[in-house]
Design a protein around this nucleic acid. Structure first.
Lengths: 157, 157
DNA sequence: TGACAATTGTAACAAGTGTTACTAATATGG
DNA sequence: CCATATTAGTAACACTTGTTACAATTGTCA
């Protein structure tokens, strides 16, 4: 729209550069959430994500987990390995297609999930608590708009 | 504010979880920018960031670069090593304090900087182009608010 | 001064992540 | 059916990143 061509030599100030601001925000928000599962429950970020989807859906195949978490299958494999070692998930091969392994939370995993989820949601609420409901709505809307633009660029290669 | 205590078992849906949305947005926005310096100029993300601050300020110490880019000193060291190998920065030890090495862009580095900056700023503009000026202002304001909340959490440990 | 602490930057190692290759199982199609 | 292709998941390798330890230089205070 407003593609005004400037003659002045363009300068870049990182602190005012949107993608940089975004990555900084993401870093501290991620840290704020990671605190909850890292120290207390010894989970890695990907493990936490896998645990989260297994909490909502029981008996998922590894591939399905990957789709829901947007993780590569290898990342899922490693996260599952960690969670199995910790005794948080159980694995059984599908009886109809033995290539597939069905995963679900163990009782311990479910306990942990039910402990963490309220903490995590409370943090999310705290993070957003200085925004009004309208502002929260708007924030998500604006994020979606920007995501759409970025996706366009990435789709080109 | 609206901290209503719910009795219903809380559920977590990743796709509606704000920190997750944020990390997804950051990922695609980062990719959209990285395209510009990765393929064409063979720069790593940290190298690009170091280049960016050296473009605005000449003759910085490695430590100062770290402060401005929010990178660890080791990350700076490696980025600088890469940039030196590529002939984009020059290094000389400070005459007053020989622990310090003063860094600045080489002519080639400055050329590259001046090529990349317009591209990068144009992408930033495109990313934000579906937002009105007011929305852009608001977006930054909301991001700052959330960052403040998150920082609070992280400062506690 | 001169011994000890602090600072700057890098090297060396550990840990994590991505990429490719592979095994096991199932689908396809001549 | 049997050879080939495809799919699910993992192992093995290379590469990146983080952590710790260190050498070199300067500051500090008895």
């Amino acid at each position: 729209m407003t593609t005004s061509i400037k003659q002045t030599p363009q300068a870049l100030n990182l602190d005012h550069f949107f993608p940089y601001q975004l990555s900084q925000l993401n870093a501290i928000v991620s840290d704020a959430i990671a605190q909850l599962y890292k120290g207390r429950y010894q989970l890695a970020p990907f493990e936490w994500r896998v645990l989260a989807v297994l909490g909502e859906h029981k008996k998922l195949a590894a591939k399905e987990i990957g789709q829901r978490t947007h993780l590569e299958k290898m990342q899922v494999s490693r996260a599952v390995a960690g969670l199995k070692t910790a005794g948080l998930v159980t694995q059984e091969t599908d009886s109809e297609d033995r290539r597939i392994t069905r995963l679900q939370l163990s009782p311990a995993g479910r306990d942990l999930y039910q402990q963490i989820v309220p903490l995590v949601l409370a943090r999310e609420a705290f993070l957003l608590s200085s925004l009004s409901d309208e502002e929260q709505q708007l924030m998500r809307k604006l994020m979606a708009k920007i995501a759409e633009q970025a996706q366009q660029l990435n789709d080109l290669g």
